[in-house]
């Protein structure tokens, strides 16, 4: 436990030291908020500002979770991973430390934007709403931090990881209804967006943070907080379940993948020994 705590603290500290990154991550969402709330006026949404803001908060949680996995790549490339691996620390402890720290950072980012959001008209009627919001952010953070670690352990190379992150982040970001209302997407992409776990995370998070969980199903569908597949309606409850399942699958995948990954092949010396013959 102590080791996980130490690894967690290290990653959080590394993040806090990067001031430029901190400021940028805080400023960018408001740029998007301004841009998008205009666009969303055309969608059938009662309050575009808070609707868009909720989407942006959860997308920031998602993007941060995935980006912080770069820490793992950095540690592999810099050689520091070897120092950890040769010590009695269990691999599962390293994996958990990584996932927890990137979840923490992601939720921290989301909370900062939410606090700023309070000044532009975000209000809650129930005391439970902020808690539910925090819980949803934690869940989303855990799910996508696991995905991030899985990708890092699978790739173990800085350049490939960068390309992969963009390739994974872009469709997930743009086909989840946060930046572009799903109703405005062509039919093919709409179908694709239903395969996107972030669609459900965003829908559930919006329903929770806008306190719309108890709306009738038809209205949820029209505000794109629920989705109609044939005659079946994916309610926010089902959305939460989907995110949970997705998170669980990748939590298991990432920890088992990380535990078995061969990091020695990454080292320059390792490959030198093989190929210089």
């Amino acid at each position: 436990m102590r080791v996980i705590g130490a690894l967690w603290l290290r990653n959080v500290r590394l993040f806090m030291r990067n001031r430029v990154q901190l400021v940028l991550i805080l400023v960018m969402p408001f740029f998007y908020l301004y841009l998008l709330s205009t666009a969303f006026k055309y969608a059938e949404v009662s309050n575009p500002y808070t609707y868009v803001l909720a989407g942006i908060v959860i997308i920031v949680v998602f993007q941060t979770s995935l980006n912080i996995a770069t820490n793992t790549i950095d540690d592999i490339v810099s050689g520091y991973m070897k120092e950890i691996l040769v010590s009695p620390v269990k691999r599962i402890q390293i994996a958990i430390g990584q996932i927890l720290s990137s979840t923490t950072i992601a939720v921290f980012q989301g909370v900062l934007i939410l606090i700023a959001g309070l000044f532009i008209g975000l209000t809650y009627t129930s005391i439970l709403t902020p808690l539910a919001i925090l819980g949803t952010m934690l869940l989303t953070g855990l799910a996508f931090s696991s995905l991030g670690l899985f990708m890092a352990a699978a790739v173990r190379n800085a350049q490939t990881f960068q390309v992969l992150t963009v390739a994974v982040t872009t469709p997930i970001t743009f086909l989840c209804g946060v930046y572009i209302p799903l109703a405005l997407l062509p039919a093919g992409l709409q179908a694709f967006s239903l395969l996107n776990p972030m669609t459900y995370a965003a829908a559930f998070f919006r329903a929770v943070s806008l306190e719309k969980l108890s709306l009738p199903a038809e209205q949820l569908v029209s505000e794109q907080l629920a989705f109609k597949v044939g005659s079946f309606i994916i309610t926010p409850g089902y959305s939460a379940l989907i995110v949970c399942l997705f998170g669980l699958v990748f939590l298991l995948l990432s920890t088992s993948f990380f535990s078995r990954a061969d990091f020695t092949r990454m080292s320059r010396s390792g490959s030198k020994d093989i190929f210089q013959q």
Partner: peptide
């Protein structure tokens, strides 16, 4: 692992941390 100390061929310091923090992490690891 508990009875060996290793200095690898390539550098394995955490360059984004101070000397003391590097050493402290090692204490936690062991």
């Amino acid at each position: 692992r508990n009875v060996i100390g290793v200095v690898f061929q390539e550098p394995t310091l955490d360059l984004k941390m101070t000397v003391e923090e590097n050493l402290k992490m090692h204490c936690y690891f062991y």
